[in-house]
Simulated assay, not measured.
Amino acid sequence: MLRFPLLAMLMAAAALPAAAQARARPVDPDAPTVVLVHGAFADASSWDKVAARLRMRGVPVVAVDNPLTSLEDDVAATRRAIAAAPGKVVLVGHSWGGTVITQAGRDPKVKALVYVAAFAPDAGENSAQQGERFPVAPGLQKLVERAGFLSLSEQTMASDFAQDLKPAQVRAAYAHQLPLKADALSERVAVAAWRSLPSWYVVSRKDRMLSPELQVATARRIGAEWRSVDAGHASPLSAPHEVSDTILEAAGLKLSEPAPGSNGG
């Protein structure tokens, strides 16, 4: 008697990939490749929700796995992704990833930059210097240093990094955490790609890792088109609709339509 319900379940499970493919659009030949660069205390999976929304629009996406061992190493990983892209690129950086795209973005294939709750130093400046004139965010006061690498405790992840995510999502974010080499924050960028490229910025109004005041000042300094979202630092996970719409705008593509009842989560 159990065979038929079990068979039905197996058939339904087998049909899921085909259903998902049916909903996805084919790659838009006019769409640039979006290269997503994660920040500290995260990995490429922090972009999963944004990447899924972009792919549903037919936009090719690459999420870079930064080693977070130095600015040079992260820039090199990002440049490899840019080089592998078949055409133009929109380069997106979250948090520390903003410093990375500021340097890596000086490439003829890059057509636009998108900063998401991110640093954007000027040439000769480092990430730490950018925050000197602003209040130190609560989460930055709780960093844990081990063997020269900075990380977050699970409690800090829940209270300051991803406070607007559900508990299961916070646990997943903590499990995927990659530490940042502390010295990277004092490495100066040699060039500032935002000086020669159109830029966009997404400010997280409830950010407890990077002061919202710093984010607004940064967006204005780099001359970015900017919007703010009612989200904490992990806005690619808590506000993926707004973040992906900003990327679509930077790519010169039609904005996506909000899902019924969606708050971007």
Rank of each mutant, 00 (worst) to 15 (best):
R146E: 15
D107L: 02
K111W: 03
S228V: 00
S204H: 03
L253R: 06
A83E: 15
K88E: 14
F4E: 15
P5Q: 05
L113V: 08
G139Q: 05
A76I: 03
Q215Y: 04
L255G: 15
L68A: 08
A182Y: 01
D73K: 11
S244N: 05
M157K: 11
A84E: 13
D30V: 03
S151I: 03
V27C: 06
F41P: 00
A231E: 06
P60M: 10
R106Y: 10
V64E: 09
A182W: 02
Q155V: 15
T33C: 04
F4K: 14
R146G: 10
S127N: 05
T218R: 06
R23K: 12
L113Q: 07
A18T: 00
Q177C: 08
S235I: 00
R23L: 08
R146S: 15
A182N: 10
A219F: 03
V100I: 07
R133P: 00
R133E: 12
A173V: 07
A190H: 09
G232W: 03
V191E: 15
A24P: 00
V203S: 10
W96C: 03
P260N: 03
Q169L: 12
V191G: 10
V191Q: 14
D48M: 01
L180D: 06
K109A: 13
A14T: 10
A83I: 04
H241S: 15
T69P: 01
L255H: 11
A14C: 14
I247N: 07
S95C: 07
R208I: 06
A19T: 15
I101A: 00
A123E: 03
S235A: 14
S153P: 02
S186L: 13
S211W: 06
N66S: 09
L150P: 01
T218G: 02
A13V: 08
A123P: 03
E154M: 10
A182P: 00
W200D: 11
S127G: 04
L237A: 09
V89A: 11
A162F: 01
